[in-house]
Design a protein around this nucleic acid. Structure first.
Lengths: 196, 196
DNA sequence: CGCGACGTTGATTTGCCTCAACGATTGTGG
DNA sequence: CCACAATCGTTGAGGCAAATCAACGTCGCG
């Protein structure tokens, strides 16, 4: 693990997009963060476990997913650089959750532990604002997603997603993209065969 | 309009579920709030307009929806007593939004205006925490909803929703419930005809 | 090299939609 | 207070988007 002091720079830069942060506040913040590198396919959370942390992605790509009755995996969220990813439901209730979180690529994350989070927020109350804004955007995006799921066909959603995130589509296997968009890999394959 | 000082009690009580609030802070908060009563079918936001406020529901029931290409309405959210409802996307970007918000029943709301919101948060920083927690729950619920949309059939989603919110199902017309759950009124009617 | 993971293609099936016609209920103006 | 229209829910026939199942090609990796 490459433990120099630049590990947290991406996160600090991200925070400063939303709020100002003095050098002193930065220093206070760092002890609450843990840096971790993840191998491809490594999990940070497994379905049925209590979620104990929030995860900021420095590098790489993670997915949050859930097992369905027929044994397949349903992806509900992807996370890439500069995104926070966690099971907020389990994190909030501290009960076993329904989601697993796993690295799709070799990745690096910063971990913010639940058990010290409130103490951190007491020391740097501004961070409440930062996370409020982060969550507001995440929620807005999630509501938009529900709208698209209901108003657009699978094919339309695929085309829009590809147009919006062309570089991301290259990074993940097609069967994961299909799962995230809510249809089967076979169907995605047929869409691509048509117009291409 | 019944303008006595109890208008904001529901909201104050809701805030105090998440954070403490002194009498003095309460007094500082009140000037930033506006109380409004809504007739059935009255709008607080129309698609294509910039969203300028967040809305806390004191009484009644509202829906957020969007017009589809074929002219029908897609409901993306319901709100009842003690819920905040707004188009966070438009509220954040201050660009025209994709959603309308309308009272389904005669309702009463408290309005928190965007243009004074930051000033309020500067006076009572604790409120950042309150909204962070509110948004965290809303986001968690939205992610769960996406999961159910993808992993359960329409019929299953209807049964689960009915079991989870039996009293709410009574309050809204079936065609709105069908829209929220992502299928047609005809289909909902056929589900009910089966097992009943 | 050989195996397992991933993507493709085709045949068939199905969950839900569309369209249309028809009761029941609500509400509104005369 | 009634008449009539509009709104809402129901039912049935037919159609379509996407799922399922199965077989096969290809590539990367141990």
């Amino acid at each position: 693990m490459n433990m120099d002091h630049t590990m947290f720079e991406n996160l600090l830069a991200h925070i400063k997009r939303y709020i100002s942060l003095s050098d002193e506040e930065e220093k206070k913040l760092l002890p609450y963060l843990t840096y971790k590198e993840l191998k491809k396919k490594e999990h940070v959370l497994k379905e049925g476990k209590v979620c104990t942390a929030n995860h900021f992605i420095i590098k790489g790509c993670l997915r949050m997913y859930s097992l369905t009755e027929n044994g397949t995996e349903q992806i509900v969220q992807f996370g890439i650089e500069n995104w926070w990813i966690t099971d907020y439901m389990s994190l909030d209730t501290q009960k076993p959750g329904q989601f697993s979180i796993q690295a799709i690529e070799p990745s690096a994350i910063v971990i913010l532990h639940k058990n010290t989070q409130d103490e951190l927020f007491r020391k740097i109350p501004k961070l409440e604002r930062y996370f409020r804004l982060v969550l507001q955007r995440a929620y807005a995006a999630s509501v938009m997603r529900v709208k698209y799921i209901f108003t657009e066909s699978g094919e339309e959603r695929f085309r829009q997603f590809t147009n919006s995130f062309p570089e991301f589509v290259q990074r993940v296997p097609q069967y994961m993209l299909a799962s995230y968009l809510g249809f089967t890999p076979e169907f995605l394959s047929k869409i691509r065969a048509k117009k291409n």
